[in-house]
């Protein structure tokens, strides 16, 4: 199927609520609130937390490894864990060291980034404490969370998209969508 054909079909299918032989997982990506990207107003919960307790600034300690989190719809408690592209890293840094742009997205020095490496999509799940850098174990790309997730070195072609944060009633809340497309090149 060529791209145009699929997109046309998808629109058609959504418009009238018919699948039309569309692969079910494709339809899901579009409709399923668990798979849609974090959006403004979403709460954040720690991955694996069955109680779905919304995270507050006190849960993210300075000097600790980044925490893996999911966004959660505050209205119905849907955890957006339906797509691996929704994995969010939360890490607390020294506020003074944040670039001006990053500071605008931070809450008390806490910043959020996608966990998906922009190279080939591994999870950036390694943390280098001395350098305060996010490290992708697959091919060694390093990203600076103090400066918009910029690539310090390695093969990643672009910065890690950031997720703006706000504080609301003592809880961390998503302040807007990711600053760029999450993921890597698939075609």
């Amino acid at each position: 199927m060529d791209r145009f054909g699929r997109r046309t079909l998808l629109k058609a299918g959504l418009g009238v609520g018919v699948g039309l032989g569309l692969k079910p997982e494709l339809a899901l990506c579009q409709d399923n609130p668990a798979s849609s990207r974090p959006g403004e107003g979403d709460l954040l919960v720690k991955a694996g937390d069955a109680m779905k307790n919304p995270l507050g600034p006190g849960d993210i300690r300075e000097g600790a490894r980044p925490i893996l989190a999911w966004a959660m719809d505050p209205a119905d408690g849907t955890v957006r864990s339906g797509s691996r592209l929704n994995q969010v890293l939360l890490v607390r840094l020294d506020q003074e060291e944040l670039s001006p742009e990053t500071r605008l997205r931070a809450v008390e020095g806490i910043v959020a980034y996608t966990a998906i490496c922009t190279h080939t999509g591994c999870e950036v799940d390694d943390w280098l404490p001395p350098e305060q850098l996010l490290h992708c174990p697959c091919h060694g790309s390093r990203f600076d969370p103090r400066d918009s997730g910029k690539v310090v070195d390695g093969e990643a072609p672009r910065a890690l998209p950031a997720l703006p944060l706000k504080l609301d009633n003592g809880r961390l809340v998503v302040g807007g969508s990711f600053t760029a497309r999450v993921g890597f090149q698939t075609a």
Binding site: M1, D2, E25, C29, R84, T120, T186, A187
Partner: peptide, 14 residues
């Protein structure tokens, strides 16, 4: 022949 990959496909070696 091309088979489109879902955007969240896990393919760590392209």
């Amino acid at each position: 022949y091309r088979k489109e990959l879902p955007e969240d496909a896990v393919v760590l070696h392209r």
